[in-house]
């Protein structure tokens, strides 16, 4: 196991170097949107996502399944041990302050996609005693080092969004089909959405964005004024989860 994982990292590192040699913009045209529209040409990068609540279909689980498939997220079949990177919650649970009794019923029931907010001021990073979770300066992604995490779960307590899951037991037997391109985790470490940094490094869109046929998920670089996400945030009203906490979440909800 150890040996093959090491080999995987060697191959992965070599492929990344090879890919990095080519300019990212030539790697466009994936699924829901073209990579060049993300704003990869800007000198600085700050990845963010907008979720279009008007387009998200009830009962559709495409983004969830795509994400959990490529990231080897296990399915334990019980809520106690559950691990999730992206999932749906009723509107009233995601935006409790915005709910009122006269709101249209479909709004209150509306499934809202939730995931790690990749905060600009992430409390989880602040509280981690080993820097196993950290914010990548160059593009703002909040990442995890699964080999450094001691499983103290301070980050879980620190996250105001419930975005983090603990591996309460060995996840490997519960992964439907292991994708060898992404590492599996071990018991006793915390995990969460990584904004598909492994795919971005290859010039590919996040798996959830690519999987969404309704184009309800818009991903891109906030530092590029021409990017699609900047355009859509400029033209439409958007909400963020618990903005009053000052964490500066980078998932925007278009209403």
């Amino acid at each position: 196991m150890e040996e093959s994982r090491r080999r995987f990292f060697r191959i992965a590192a070599a492929s990344l170097l090879a890919l990095g040699a080519k300019p990212l913009k030539t790697l466009g045209g994936y699924g829901g949107g073209s990579f060049s529209r993300l704003g990869t040409e800007a000198p600085r990068r700050r990845w963010a996502m907008a979720v279009d609540l008007t387009k998200c279909r009830e009962g559709c689980r495409d983004c969830i399944e795509a994400c959990h498939q490529v990231h080897n997220v296990p399915d334990f079949g019980n809520p106690k041990d559950e691990i999730k990177w992206i999932w749906q919650e009723p509107f009233r649970n995601v935006f409790p302050a915005h709910e009122h009794p006269w709101m249209a019923r479909e709004y209150r029931r509306l499934p809202v996609v939730v995931l790690c907010n990749h905060c600009d001021q992430p409390p989880c990073v602040r509280v981690c005693p080993t820097q196993a979770t950290f914010r990548r300066e160059e593009d703002g992604i909040v990442m995890m080092d699964y080999h450094r995490c001691i499983g103290c779960r301070f980050c879980v307590a620190g996250c105001p969004y419930g975005a983090r899951s603990m591996n309460f037991r060995d996840p490997r037997p519960f992964i439907r089909q292991i994708d060898p391109r992404f590492p599996t985790r071990t018991k006793g470490v915390v995990e969460k959405c990584n904004f598909c940094e492994e795919r971005l490094a290859q010039g590919r869109l996040p798996a959830c964005v690519e999987a969404c046929k309704e184009r309800a998920l818009i991903f891109g670089n906030l530092e590029d004024p021409a990017s699609e996400i900047r355009q859509v945030l400029q033209n439409r009203f958007s909400l963020r989860r618990k903005p009053e906490l000052g964490t500066q979440p980078q998932i925007y909800y278009l209403v």
């Binding site: 981690c128 005693p129 001691i150 499983g151 103290c152 915390v190």
Partner: peptide, 25 residues
């Protein structure tokens, strides 16, 4: 605290990567 850790054999990471911004440190 040790009993509560998911990866107790890595407990010394707290010393290897001292993180003064963390209250646990």
């Amino acid at each position: 605290v040790i009993v509560d850790l998911g990866q107790p054999m890595r407990a010394f990471n707290v010393l290897l990567y001292p993180s003064p911004q963390s209250i646990l440190f």
